[in-house]
Design a binder for these strands. Structure first.
Lengths: 225, 225
DNA sequence: CAAAATTTTAAATTATTTTTGACAAAAAGT
DNA sequence: ACTTTTTGTCAAAAATAATTTAAAATTTTG
């Protein structure tokens, strides 16, 4: 479950990151509007905790960008007490909730969970790509209406691929997104071969075709056929 | 069919309003105790969804007012998980049912209908899934017309599963729903295993089959067979 | 109100499944 | 030729789930 914290105040961002990390989320931080936009375009986040007052512009731009991209990420905006207009604008633009500074970490945590829950229960939660059907509620993956039995990592991997379809994902970025920051650059990522192998086999056996192609020397790419 | 939502959290109220609107109700919102009292004195509502924790006072006052006016409106109170006294007081004062935050909209909908049905037709309110029959009024669970004897937690757990059938429920979300916000991520949820086991055994023994399956690394899922 | 019974929670143990890592040989890409 | 990736199999380590037992809390009963 990946979150992005957009917050220029290092101490706060770091603190939150650690706290949310302990609570089972994989957290990334962007400390400028520029970086936030970049990350949002490159990756998919379950939820974005967005401080509106950034040094190089308004966080509201991030919301606009997300909505333009038809993103389904949850958005929790963080505003100063006196910035009520920002809050209102943010909600109008499509943010899911807001919280005013200063706040308690426990409350942030509760709201984060609340948004994620609401998101999940809303609307259709089925992703359909060619023959592959993923129901995010039931966490079931089907090919031709036949359910396949994926392990946790395989499921996460598939989802990561699908959220980033038609993009090259390096082994490093896969490791980072599935395992979090505690991964060392010096580590060896050979175990990823295994997961790729297993996922490929299961998809292949179910008759979904060959979606995951390797890009020699770079990584992998999930093709929409 | 007119409902009043008394809720200061704009996002939630708006969300519910929309949802209930789609489900055929005419919905009004009051976001303060003051406004709620005013509306209640002026109009008649079939049912009032009442958050107890309001910025300008306790929602319990609304119940008192209604009872003084000998209103026949249904009352569904919404409380935070840790505000058990409020729930108890509310029911004592004459509320018809309660639901604790956070809740699933489908569950709210079910309860709303349940109250209205009970009020209006004094009719039965039964959920039937395969061989399992749950009477929400009498809180009785039957399999093949044989009543089974569930404890409170088992009953709640079963209901939570059934309201979310075919979805994976994590241990965390089960804990959160049945025990409330005061649950820490760091806590250990092993005791849930016990309730799962007991519920499974009772259902199995009654001949209802194996509905509750575990999804390794993810949680549990109640299958409609 | 207190004893007894039941239910819920907790802790310890066992069982199961997944994840990771290793090796080696074959295949593919540069 | 050289490097990277694929594949298979195997096995240890780690994570998760189930079971057992007992303590704590709650409810029922006399």
């Amino acid at each position: 479950m990946k979150l992005l914290i957009v917050e220029d105040h290092f101490q706060l961002a770091d603190d939150l990151s650690r706290f949310l990390g302990e609570n089972g989320f994989v957290v990334e931080i962007a400390d400028t509007l520029e970086k936030a936009k970049e990350k949002v375009e490159l990756y998919h986040y379950e939820l974005i905790i967005l401080d509106i007052g950034l040094p190089d512009g308004s966080g509201l731009d991030v919301i606009k960008l997300l909505k333009k991209r038809k993103s389904d990420s949850g958005i929790l905006i963080v505003t100063a007490k006196n910035a009520i207009e920002d809050k209102v604008k943010g909600l109008e633009l499509g943010a899911d909730d807001y919280i005013t500074k200063p706040f308690h970490k426990a409350e942030l945590n509760a709201r984060v969970r609340s948004i994620i829950r609401r998101k999940k229960f809303n609307g259709s939660n089925v992703i359909l790509i060619n023959k592959i059907e993923i129901d995010l509620n039931s966490m079931a993956v089907k090919v031709d209406d036949k359910e396949l039995d994926l392990t946790r990592k395989e499921y996460d991997l598939l989802l990561y691929f699908i959220y980033n379809k038609n993009r090259v994902l390096t082994k490093e970025s896969i490791a980072e997104h599935l395992w979090g920051d505690h991964i060392d650059q010096a580590d060896n990522f050979d175990f990823i071969y295994n997961h790729i192998k297993n996922l490929r086999k299961k998809l292949q056996q179910a008759g979904a075709g060959n979606h995951i192609r390797s890009v020699y020397g770079m990584g992998y790419k999930f093709y929409e056929l």
